[in-house]
Simulated scan of single mutants.
Amino acid sequence: MGWSTEQDGAGTQGVQDAQEGSGAGAAGERGGEPARPPAALSPSRASDFMQCPLLYRFRVIDRLPEKPSPAATRGTVVHAVLERLFDAPAAARTAAGARAMVPGEWERLLAKRPELAELFADDPEGERLAAWLAEAEALVERWFSLEDPQRLEPADRELYVETELASGLRLRGFIDRVDVAPTGEVRIVDYKTGKAPRPEFAEGALFQMKFYALVVWRLRGVVPRRLQLVYLGSGEVRTYDPGEADLLAVERKLLALWEAIRLATETGDWRPRPTKLCGWCDHRAHCPEFGGTPPVYPLPVRAAGGASAGGSGVGSR
């Protein structure tokens, strides 16, 4: 199956920006814009709610700040390189050229988000930064052992997709790459800078891909032929060929998830769900599981009889 097609040449930045739920900050955030109920669902926010409803609240409704992560920031730089590499003619898409793009993409990201400089604030000699950039370069180079960009012409890169289901639920997100074969078959590709998970933990990444496939199906009327996860950390490619039944099951799951989010939004009942991942959470100081207190809930709360009460201190229980 060939996946070459004409490329549109349009890349989209800000992968995470469009996956932050409602797009509105809590009072005091984003110039004092008041908090609003969630208006759409992205794969990352759906995963947040499934992992821990209180985490979803902190990120989407309260918009609590989070410290930048070296791993996540490295992933953003690597994604930018793999997107922009296709701006060059096919013959110029080489591993050496891609590696050389890494420092420039880091500087571009730093100019957009100056707060990322704190990642290396305690690195006066630049040794940690140099090692970090070398790790990003190694990930970029490993990609060339998994795919040949000289034989690919993506139809879309960093493609923003958004659709509204018949139920009114709005789904949105960014797809790293979309390939379209001459026969019209669609392949959705996602780059992961970490290692491929063990089979028992692979469902999370596959859920994200099925989410994108559902959106593309609803937008274009075509079920993607293949979903492809490219794990740069371990040098593996995993694929899945979805069917309509797969995507209908995902749609039902998302509708149930959205109903649970709607209920939590109206009642202010966002319960924490402790897991091993809590050790990496930035919000433990606000989490009741760790002796913290959530911020005052910024949205109206539905009283027991169905009437709305004013904002209250309702947190997670």
Rank of each mutant, 00 (worst) to 15 (best):
R63E: 04
V81S: 02
R284Y: 10
G168E: 03
G306Y: 07
E115N: 05
L82N: 04
R220I: 08
T94W: 01
L277G: 11
E125C: 05
L219T: 07
V140T: 03
R93D: 04
R45L: 01
E289R: 10
L85S: 12
D190P: 12
A72Q: 08
L299C: 06
R177Y: 10
L263R: 15
R108K: 10
V78K: 02
P43A: 03
R74W: 02
A181W: 00
M101K: 07
G2I: 04
L64A: 08
T5L: 07
A92T: 11
G315K: 02
P89Y: 00
A285H: 14
G11W: 15
F174E: 13
S234E: 09
Q228C: 13
T73M: 00
K210G: 00
E135H: 12
P89K: 03
I188K: 04
C281H: 08
S145P: 06
D62N: 13
P295G: 06
H286W: 15
P124W: 11
P154T: 01
E20D: 08
P288D: 10
G311F: 08
S234M: 05
C52E: 07
S47F: 00
E20T: 11
A24Y: 14
P197Q: 00
A40F: 04
E83Q: 14
R225V: 12
A121D: 11
R225Q: 15
A130S: 14
V102H: 02
